[in-house]
């Protein structure tokens, strides 16, 4: 159970930086009075955020990740089961890793 001082300082620094993002984004938003335009833009954030997360990761990950993503996508769209899609997609990625 060692707690090194410099490690502790780095962890606290990371925690503060992270909360500055988590809480700070909304705190800033509260200071301004959002116009209808800002609201219209915000409505597109959830989808575009996940697109920006997933697409570059898939491009970097190559064919095996694409196979996993395709299976995940198909299961999710057809069954709507989150857990089925995650397990099925990860299984497919695993198979792709083994054979491709």
């Amino acid at each position: 159970m060692r707690l090194d001082l410099s490690n502790l300082a780095a962890i606290i620094g990371m925690a503060l930086a992270t909360y500055a993002c988590r809480g700070g984004g909304y705190w800033l938003f509260r200071q301004i009075r959002p116009t209808p335009l800002i609201r219209a833009v915000l409505a597109f954030i959830p989808g575009t955020l996940f697109v920006s997360y997933v697409v570059p990761a898939l491009v970097a990950g190559g064919v095996r990740q694409m196979v996993g993503a395709a299976v995940t996508l198909v299961i999710m769209i057809t069954t709507g089961s989150l857990i089925g899609a995650i397990v099925g997609g990860t299984g497919a990625a695993w198979l792709a890793y083994s054979f491709l």
Partner: peptide, 24 residues
Amino acid sequence: PAPIVAATFAAFVVNLRLALMGPV
């Protein structure tokens, strides 16, 4: 010893996306 400034900066840069999420 731990990279205090670099780790803090990395956390901020990687988590900047969270700032967009709260307002939604």
